[in-house]
Design a protein around this nucleic acid. Structure first.
Lengths: 212, 212
DNA sequence: TAGATTGTTAATCGATTAACAATC
DNA sequence: TAGATTGTTAATCGATTAACAATC
């Protein structure tokens, strides 16, 4: 094949940029424009497109509407994407209320926690006891979950999610969960990201000295 | 050279795993153990180490204490790493209170916002008006900032941070900020991560069908 | 037309891995 | 000793880019 994860991820980035361009009134784009916006080379943009049979006009670039339609077809389109949040602590609650999701057609349909004080099935976004998770995942056909439980519970809750039928997990717990057969896991480790920033800076500095 | 960003990022992952192993009472590790924990091949672990002059014993693997010391030397070690949060909305506030940072020796020293209602210079972690940002960054020698402002303000505030002397930005606004000369920017776009999960699942499905 | 941009091939580049001698 | 693991070289692999004919 060749349609690796990286390509799919880039396609989604192109789509996001294109939607912004459309709202600005653009009608067409060149591979050059997209390349600049996403931070890749124009050749790669064209290659990514051609890999999925998306073509443009030799001199006129790509029609914005066409392109977005095609990308939606490939990426899974316009349906509202339903997600649950498991672990309603600080970060979990913040994500449940995050306004940026609506624009991307992402809807959080429920939260789950073990703390009885947090349970509130009548809230706009209901918060349920975690024991109800398997039932809700099945009846609502939930495919993707955001995992924001403490580190100590993360592995166990991840297993529970997979057992219930969840196929994609966005993990914020500071533990590396591994993608398995049929389950895609993305790990976001904020402390590690900060550490990496500090390391890279330190490195950039010593590089600078070396070149002086 | 060859010490690319990826290598540095892996070294930090090794270090995290090693610290956990140490707290479990481990005394030595093999490249095999680390490879499993971080999800890479044993050969790559050894290569990464040898690239920085870290050596083990031909039969006995690597001494845990030695290894951690070496990694600390390379990665910038044990000092407390001071960070500011710019934008004290839901996510910004959640991060300011996130308990996981302390363990990684990360300390949030201040928050900034434009909303007068949020300003509170006497809180445990003071929240200041954004106009004070340049002064605080300079006087406290802040190198890294977490950016959690709304999309519409992100680019402008990022410029402000760089002008004030910040050299690393962890950007949560849904906009792709580009790393420049001397400035490292990591973008975490949570909506995009979720979109990617859905896309990858959709892809995995159609792959599955094809192989049936 | 002249100029610009696509689509695609072949070349390049860099990162990862296989493999194995060295050696504990 | 026999067995296991490192350190390193050379081979592989895959992704990216350069380059250019096609063509609008």
């Amino acid at each position: 094949m060749g349609a690796t994860k990286e390509v799919v991820v880039r396609l989604a980035k192109y789509k996001n940029v294109l939607e912004k361009l459309r709202s600005l009134g653009f009608v067409k784009v060149f591979s050059d424009n997209l390349a600049d916006a996403v931070g890749v080379s124009p050749a790669l943009v064209r290659k990514d497109f051609s890999m999925f049979g998306i073509t443009g006009k030799k001199r006129g670039g790509y029609q914005l509407d066409d392109l977005i339609t095609q990308l939606n077809r490939i990426l899974g389109g316009d349906e509202v994407q339903r997600v649950i949040v498991v672990g309603c602590g600080k970060i979990g609650s913040a994500l449940m209320q995050y306004r940026g999701f609506a624009r991307e057609r992402i809807r959080i349909v429920a939260g789950f926690d073990v703390d009885p004080a947090k349970i509130d099935p009548n809230a706009p976004i209901p918060i349920r006891d975690i024991s109800e998770l398997p039932y809700v995942v099945k009846s609502e056909k939930i495919k993707v979950a955001i995992l924001t439980v403490p580190e100590s519970a993360a592995a166990q809750v991840a297993d529970m999610l997979v057992a219930a039928g969840v196929r994609g997990i966005l993990n914020f717990a500071p533990i590396l969960l591994k993608s398995q057969q049929n389950v895609v896991i993305h790990n976001i480790n904020i402390a590690l990201e900060l550490e990496n920033l500090f390391c890279l800076l330190r490195f950039a500095e010593s590089e600078g000295e070396r070149n002086r």
